[in-house]
Amino acid sequence: MGNSSSLLTQYDLEDLQNHTNHLFSQREIVSLYERFCALDRTGKGFISADEFMGVPEFAVNPLCQRLLKMLEGLNFKEFIALLSAFSARATQQDKINFIFRVYDTDANGKVTASDILQVLRDLSGSFLSDKQRELVLNQALEQAGYTKDSALTTEDFSKVLGNLKMEVEVPVD
């Protein structure tokens, strides 16, 4: 499964479907594999930071550095497992777990006000001042019953996010 010249066997497809809890169809997996191979220009079996940054949509994403930490060096099996949160078949909890990982900047299993402020800073750039970001954060936390001193677990994070919609349609040829 490492380079673009290899093909996925039926066994590979079934294994990958099982690995992603059947959140992708076999056609979607093939399409994702073709895209993965196209991005893996060196044929090493993983996508480097430089290769990811070569994708214009990725490079302009304000969270690209955070996402790179999660994506860089993943093989295809790990890559689609991570992407499975974007499947239309993924549960709300799958999606929240992914977003939680983006916000948990120090990977300690908790999201703090500092973590959220850093993500807000990345997302808003100079559009919002630090004071405005803190106000937004405090209001969101307060509405969910938390304070800026709270350290949110994934369950707490679910309450703050509410009804999240996060889906990407995988084009299949």
Rank of each mutant, 00 (worst) to 15 (best):
N21D: 15
H22R: 11
H22C: 10
L23C: 08
F24N: 03
F24H: 02
E28R: 04
E28H: 07
S31V: 07
Y33R: 15
Y33Q: 02
F36K: 09
C37V: 06
C37F: 02
A38T: 12
L39T: 03
G43K: 06
K44C: 12
K44Y: 02
F46N: 09
I47N: 01
I47P: 00
I47D: 01
I47T: 06
D50W: 06
D50T: 10
E51P: 02
G54E: 09
G54D: 10
V55Q: 12
E57R: 14
F58T: 10
V60R: 15
N61K: 12
N61L: 06
L63G: 01
L63D: 09
L63T: 04
R66Q: 12
R66D: 14
M70P: 00
L71A: 08
E72D: 08
G73F: 05
G73L: 03
N75L: 02
N75Y: 02
F76D: 00
K77S: 15
K77E: 13
E78Y: 03
F79T: 07
F79S: 02
F79W: 13
F79D: 01
F79Q: 01
I80G: 01
A81T: 04
L82Q: 04
L83I: 08
S84E: 08
S84F: 06
A85I: 06
F86N: 05
A88Q: 12
A88C: 06
A88S: 13
Q92I: 11
Q92L: 14
Q92V: 08
Q93C: 05
K95V: 07
I96Y: 01
F98S: 06
Y103G: 11
D104A: 06
A107S: 15
A107P: 00
N108W: 04
K110L: 13
V111S: 11
T112W: 02
T112L: 04
A113R: 03
A113M: 03
S114A: 13
S114K: 11
S114T: 13
D115R: 03
I116H: 00
I116K: 01
L117R: 08
Q118F: 07
V119G: 03
V119F: 03
V119W: 02
L120W: 04
D122A: 13
L123A: 03
S124F: 14
S126E: 15
S126V: 11
S126P: 00
F127P: 00
L128Q: 13
S129N: 09
D130L: 10
D130V: 07
K131L: 08
K131R: 13
Q132T: 10
Q132H: 11
R133K: 15
E134R: 14
E134A: 05
L135D: 14
V136I: 15
Q139R: 14
Q139P: 02
L141H: 11
G145C: 09
G145E: 06
G145K: 07
G145F: 07
Y146A: 06
Y146S: 05
T147G: 15
T147A: 08
K148M: 09
K148Y: 00
K148E: 11
D149G: 09
S150I: 05
S150L: 04
L152E: 07
L152C: 10
T153Y: 09
T153H: 09
E155S: 13
S158W: 01
K159M: 09
V160F: 04
L161C: 15
G162H: 08
G162L: 11
L164Y: 08
K165S: 14
M166T: 06
E167Q: 13
E167T: 14
